[in-house]
Design a protein around this nucleic acid. Structure first.
Lengths: 341, 341
DNA sequence: CTGTTAGCGCATTCAC
DNA sequence: GTGAATGCGCTAACAG
């Protein structure tokens, strides 16, 4: 079932069918009708592969992503898919494991498929210089996290603010002994938030105390254990900042098990604003991070990059790599309160 | 950069390169080496599109899915991608909205791309006869939920057991006034679980009381409100079955706000076993539903279907549609306990 | 073992 | 306005 069958059915040459289907050239309304009718009757569907071979463009965006079974990562991917769809682009997903070891394979697959561009959603490779280099040899790429080298296009939310805001909020409530459960220390965002935490404390004239920091590895159960470690060590903690909401849930659970009331005895603040943050016990004060928007923005930036590549760049500055930072903001619920007496 | 460039570089005809790259025919080790060397030096990557045009197979699986930003739906998709990758298949994602109105478009896109098969992950279309019919005209399809007509291949978890098990557990603990927060009533699974709930009660000689059922629409906030409606109406409830964990979290929150202790005053049981179920307050007794496995199984079944299509079917019975049902099982944590005095 | 001939479905250029 | 010729990158059958 091809363009030729349609041509035969409508009594024209197959090239004419091609014109009608692409809206190119000029065709008599009469024959146009006949062709369209034949298309409908035959249920003809054009072959995107064959078209791609000719046009040398696939209208496809490749995505390299880690496991997206948790909400925040999934929102990135969903945002990408939606925005791509709006621009009539298809999306091919390739996954990499937590170590990013499959990344070369993913890249190869996407190159074989001649994707127009790639969006990287794999913090696992944020420090892999080999991957970053490999990426430079392929189609235009936008990353949702850091990549080695300074000529990559990045789209991400404001990592510093996502820690500055909540810690400042706790400080404003009078807290001085503020603990932190960090993400996986192998990830840059954990350190960025760590630094912002230190900075916020300094702003308030408080010395950094490493005893108040434990690693939760983004994991709800590990955060539970981390919280116990913190309180076993420092009984005077009055607030905990968890670097994501998932871990904040583990923190709430641990505090509950220790008989500490939130926020009366201890405040808890998270980060991300996942859907269930409204119904934790108590509802979680947190930072809203725009994951969908990040995915959508990445697509728009990538498309702009592609358009720029084909048109004649006026000056070199047009090609300057960009770094889009999306703002975050506080969401106040009831897991935070004034410091206890 | 094509196969011809490689041929020129290694001094052979381009067809010979094709043979080497595909392991077909026989080639002198010497020339083979030369060709492989040229491939490496040039960084040649074959064009999957062009190959597809010839071979009339794309090694691609299309996925039609609703928004997968919640864990359970995402696990389906992740399972699909992983298993497809293991079988060297690529995955194209197309999303449909909650009403399934984009489904025709998705299907068209996947047909244009000549995907080998399709996996449907969109409960939104489970009662759409038009879509089901359309699906029959396309490539082989496996659905992760019901579809109208009885000749579709289905892969899903045991919906009845996912309600029978938890309700029986509550009954065994002595509960008699067991409330239920249902999913969205527009979805079949809500009704399947509703029926199983009624059946479990009947087994215990308890009459069904509609006052004990409220709709939570799969939503954490709506489940919170539904719980208040239930208890405003019936003060004697001693246990609540939420049709998914997300809603169970809303139930826990509502009970907490009403000053009811879980499980001392009221037991709560969920369904799905999402990751944070271990750290809710209290940790949630629930039913483990194998979402990853469902996605993986769907791919395997689809691949089997494709293999069967190409080989000569011995008898008609070989083509019989299948209905794979994955087992579920209880996970006991501390949100359930014996009925209070 | 190698190269030749053929054609997949489509878009584009240029005659008519 | 329409169709013939041409080629995209590749695989497959066959001839040398």
């Amino acid at each position: 079932m091809s363009i030729k069958d349609v041509a035969a059915r409508s009594g024209v040459a197959f090239q004419t069918v091609s014109k009608v289907l692409n809206g190119k050239g000029s065709v008599t309304p009469a024959t146009r009708e006949r062709i369209l009718a034949a298309v409908a009757e035959l249920g003809y569907v054009p072959d995107a592969q064959a078209r791609s071979v000719r046009t040398r463009t696939t209208a496809t965006i490749g995505v390299i992503t880690i496991d997206f079974s948790n909400t925040t990562i999934a929102q990135h991917v969903v945002g990408i898919e939606r925005e791509a769809r709006r621009h009539n682009r298809d999306v091919i997903i390739t996954s990499v494991d937590e170590q990013g070891s499959d990344c070369e394979r993913s890249l190869r697959i996407l190159r074989e498929r001649r994707v127009d561009g790639i969006i990287v959603n794999a913090p696992a490779v944020e420090d892999r210089e080999d991957i970053a280099e490999l990426l430079r040899t392929g189609p235009p790429t936008v990353s949702l996290h850091h990549l080695p080298g300074d000529n990559h296009t990045l789209v991400h939310s404001d990592g510093r603010a996502s820690a500055l805001l909540p810690v400042r909020h706790l400080l404003a409530l009078g807290h001085r002994r503020i603990a932190m459960v960090t993400g996986w220390s192998a990830r840059r965002i954990s350190h960025v938030r760590h630094q912002a935490y230190v900075q916020a404390l300094e702003e308030a004239g408080i010395d950094y105390d490493p005893a108040l920091v434990e690693e939760g590895r983004w994991d709800v159960d590990e955060a539970y254990r981390a919280t116990h470690r913190l309180f076993d060590r420092s009984g005077d903690i009055t607030a905990v900042f968890a670097q994501n909401d998932q871990m904040a849930i583990g923190v709430l659970s641990a505090l509950h098990d220790r008989g500490l009331r939130v926020p009366a005895d201890c405040s808890v603040i998270g980060c991300d604003d996942i859907p269930i943050a409204t119904q934790t016990i108590p509802p979680l004060t947190t930072v809203r991070v725009p994951f969908y928007e990040a995915g959508e923005t990445a697509v728009r930036v990538l498309l702009a990059l592609l358009a720029q590549d084909t048109s004649q760049p006026q000056t070199d500055s047009d090609q300057a790599p960009r770094d889009v930072v999306l703002p975050v903001h506080m969401v106040y619920r009831s897991s935070t309160g004034p410091v206890p007496e």
